[in-house]
Design a protein around this nucleic acid. Structure first.
Lengths: 207, 207
DNA sequence: GTCTATACAACGATAGAC
DNA sequence: GTCTATCGTTGTATAGAC
């Protein structure tokens, strides 16, 4: 252990060990909204989960819809970046897809905008809806682009890459429910990921 | 045209041209809940859509959760029966699946319980949740059984039939969103149905 | 920046007239 | 069976003290 006299003199810089309040609220909101959707979540619930009062939430985010949008946009951005990182690693696409699937299945977060936006359409301004749909589109494109490149190399059937990417995301959502059904755990995750990618890859037709 | 004297004497039996109130409410509720989920729908909205007042809705259904459960159970029952009817027609399974897909894609109704139950878990009693999950299970089994029979005949790969059935339903949900994205219409429905069944059948692997 | 207190609307549910 | 009217609660949002 280091002795005290080795410490730099003066007051140590503020290390910001606590997460900034706004970020704490954003994370709590994202968790709530992904679990229950927009309408079923109250601002009190988000505040409790973030460890602050409701007034603080309104201080940082002017309304429930704004909080919803900001939280979900952040989720989509982080998901897109992690997805891109995994898909850009080396090796055969089927392997990268399997890894991506295992990773995503281990997180309870849904990426399916049709799930997320359920029950929020009436409350959101159409400009907010538009922005969120575009965020989803960007995520789908990350996957579709990878598929399209493989198709160009003749390593995949020539089909609509965006359609295939959305199909993958739909299966991913199903997989999360399947894991909850089978009781969770890493073994179950690997098993479901394997079945899921296999189905996407080969379909149900006999070889 | 028949003459009046051929009519049976006396007052004609009440033909019930109007749908019974309870059924009208059930249909209105099912539409609302499938569009927006449990939490985002108010009893006033259901009442308006059914053309009655809120008090009437409470006369027939004691609470919002009861109305939700009854409406969704009815939807699942009807869907299961129509699905079974189509799958039991003759011809190759791929054709029957295509027809089923076109039929289901033409209806905006979601069959995905993970969509439907979103934001209702906290409000529903666990016995109600259980009942609805069982209703979904029965629908999945109808599809899985058909797949399992084909597998037994060697006309499909030997995979988990329930998993494959759920995958199909997940793709169906994706297809409905895809149709809205492409602007609807019968041509779009046929196109998406074709792509969807093709993907399920053959996967993305090159032939 | 964060708190307490509260205004105001919406919602689930009920009472009682007809 | 259906209505109007209303109760109690919850939820969004804001005001003002500290």
């Amino acid at each position: 252990m280091r002795k005290a006299r080795n410490r730099r003199p003066g007051r140590p810089p503020q290390v910001e060990v606590d997460e900034p309040t706004a970020e704490k609220i954003l994370r709590a909101a994202a968790d709530c909204f992904m679990e229950e959707g927009f309408a079923a979540v109250s601002m009190d619930e988000v505040a409790d989960r973030a460890g602050v009062t409701k007034a603080v939430v309104y201080y940082y985010f002017g309304s429930k819809t704004e909080l919803f949008q900001r939280a979900m946009m952040e989720v989509m951005r982080a998901s897109r970046e992690r997805t891109q990182a995994i898909l850009r690693e080396g090796g055969p696409l089927s392997e990268r897809l399997r890894k991506l699937t295992r990773t995503r299945l281990a997180i309870p977060a849904t990426l399916d905008m049709n799930h997320i936006l359920r029950g929020s359409q009436r409350a959101l301004r159409k400009e907010q809806l538009e922005e969120m749909h575009q965020a989803e589109e960007r995520l789908v494109e990350v996957i579709a682009q990878e598929l399209a490149e493989e198709m160009a190399r003749g390593r995949l059937r020539q089909i609509d890459a965006m359609f295939a990417a959305r199909s993958y995301l739909a299966l991913l959502g199903m997989g999360q429910a399947e894991i909850r059904r089978r009781g969770g755990g890493q073994a179950v995750i690997d098993e479901v990921a394997e079945e899921l990618v296999d189905l996407l890859w080969r379909g149900i037709e006999p070889t």
